[in-house]
Nucleic acid binder design. Structure first.
Lengths: 348, 348
DNA sequence: CTGCCGGTGGAATAGGCTTTCCGAAAACCG
DNA sequence: CGGTTTTCGGAAAGCCTATTCCACCGGCAG
């Protein structure tokens, strides 16, 4: 395609141009600019560098990727980038990636496996260095199978897959200590005097939610309190999920509840909105606790008791797993810490 | 580099492989798979397609970019992806981009021009189709010059630059009607009975903040109320900015204020926190209004009066500007609408 | 003085894809 | 039915870089 030299649409300057301007071969220019193993004469180096500066050269990343057969881009897959948890995670991952000279492209799965599979497929085409899968996880076993297959194909072509807080699959993982965090939270709440609980869980296939529910239960049991199955309401891992769960709750069940534990903060916030809608006050009528400690909690009154997830650390670890291509199926657990605030005052 | 065929590290299947498997030439395979202008025989199409499926072929995006000299990636530059406004914007842009078959890569500028310049430079190397610059804007005229130069070089190589709600520079723009939105807000507040105001502005060079302050002033003047310069406090376009501004306020000035207008919601939320710290209640002691209508407002009590910015529309328009490469220096204004809520009750 | 070696620049090739250009076969037309 | 288009595969050139391979240099030991 003979791109007509449109007015003001110069052809980008290539490495070849730089080489010519410096009076050296392309290979030499390449060696100077990207710093390969080979040494080049000091003087030639200078010539090349100054030519590059003069011409305002920037390496063509795609061409480099093709030539090297390996890219410097890692992909971050999240359910919803507008969600505070994921956007903080994205920020953390990007920060960590930069320290390794990596670029990050973010893709949104909208909590849809098929879309996710499609994305992984595309990413394979893009030769992404790694795929970091944060959040989501699905009910349909067959689709999960398909996803795993796709992820495996991705790894077959040399990429690394990193799962963040997700169902147990045969890939490198960064996990939060969801179980322990929730267990400690439960213990702390019991110590504050709470005795009857309702848990707002999310999709059961999500390792995160499952572990949080389980941990909470264990924490209660440790103090001799049993959590009945009908005290666990399953909904979605989102604000709406929390809101809807509360809307759907029996009047009597609600009255019997002293404290609601939502498996993440977004759900907790949705639940609070739902409670408000039903004319109930937090914490006077019912106490509430969440999980994650997302940034926007600083705006909530009363302040919300939660379990802090060190997103920065998670991001850092995810990138670390992504680059050390050695450690296939490597596992790293990040601790979570209980933060007691005003939404769960001491009782009695 | 003779990549040793590591166990389980197959070489990716290429278009050539597909062509061979289908018994056609590479050109034909290419034509079938990417749908070029040229028509190919129905039967060959089938052969190619089924071969591609069988081999699990995915096009190598980098190679396509190199070959086409043009990519399908647009870059979104934001100050801080963890900020609710920007993450919603990002979500909107990505949604819109997808409809056009474009990929989005997000980069974070951390409100730092040098970094921004650096990023634009890199993006030129990546042959991004377009750069969407959202937020930020700077004090230093020299650096702004440098940025503009870099952006122009980017356009010289065939990319498009789209500015979202940003200082007036010679590029395509999507603007909010900040002035009119703020003007209407002011008018509405006066009608509710408010008479003495404090405005929390942000960096003056930001077109957004300047227009919002200006619009608010005009709205007040329309009702015969003057806004004195000492009633405008300049700070940063962030939660901390709002918080700090309130912390730094004179006791007397604060007492004399009936309503605080922060030029964006994050600042307003920071201001509320600051007020709480100083023992003042909203709206009993002082009313407050923001701008943007970010998602997390749904969790705030009392609900916050604000001006809604239709982020989806903005994202859509930004992408529209990005693809129609014709309209250089094209300008689109998106309306903003006043949303009155509980943080500004009718007065007296 | 000769043969060999480490070092360094350049030519050539690889990498995966798109697109132009050719040529042959098919379709059309008088 | 001959000549002219049109249609549609395939070969080959090109996009930009990285890297291999080759050639040539001076140095060094024998």
């Amino acid at each position: 395609m003979a791109r007509a030299p449109q007015p003001g649409q110069r052809k980008p300057v290539t490495l070849f141009d730089v080489a010519r301007a410096a009076g050296v071969s392309q290979s030499t220019a390449s060696r100077v600019i990207n710093g390969s193993q080979r040494v080049v004469n000091e003087e030639l180096q200078q010539r090349v560098l100054s030519a590059a500066t003069k011409l305002n050269y920037t390496a063509n990343l795609s061409a480099q990727t093709v030539a090297r057969g390996k890219s410097t881009t890692v992909a971050l897959l999240v359910s919803d980038i507008a969600d505070g948890y994921f956007s903080s995670m994205a920020a953390a991952v990007m920060r960590a990636a930069e320290a390794h000279g990596l670029r990050v492209t973010i893709a949104v799965t909208e909590r849809n496996v098929e879309r996710e599979i499609e994305l992984v497929r595309e990413l394979r085409g893009q030769h992404a260095r790694a795929i970091i899968l944060a959040g989501s996880g699905y009910l349909d076993a067959k689709l999960t199978q398909a996803l795993v297959r796709e992820l495996q194909m991705f790894e077959d072509t040399g990429g690394t897959v990193v799962l963040v807080s997700r169902s147990n699959l045969p890939f490198a993982q960064v996990d939060l200590d969801n179980l322990e965090g929730a267990r400690r939270l439960a213990a702390a709440l019991v110590r504050l005097g709470y005795q009857s609980f309702t848990v707002l869980g999310a999709e059961r296939t999500l390792v995160a939610t499952h572990d949080r529910v389980q941990g909470f239960r264990l924490g209660l049991e440790g103090h001799g309190i049993m959590l009945r199955d009908d005290q666990i309401l399953y909904s979605n891992f989102s604000w709406e999920g929390g809101f809807d769960a509360i809307q759907a709750m029996d009047e009597s069940a609600l009255d019997a509840t002293e404290l609601i534990f939502a498996v993440n903060d977004e759900m907790a916030l949705g639940a609070i909105a739902g409670l408000r809608e039903r004319g109930m006050r937090v914490p006077d009528d019912v106490a509430i606790a969440g999980f994650d400690d997302i940034r926007s909690l600083r705006n909530i009154v009363p302040s919300l008791t939660t379990v802090r997830v060190p997103v920065d650390e998670v991001g850092r670890q995810a990138i670390a797993r992504a680059v050390e291509d050695g450690g296939r199926a490597d596992h790293k657990v990040v601790n979570a810490t209980v933060v007691l605030r005003d939404s769960t005052p001491r009782r009695r």
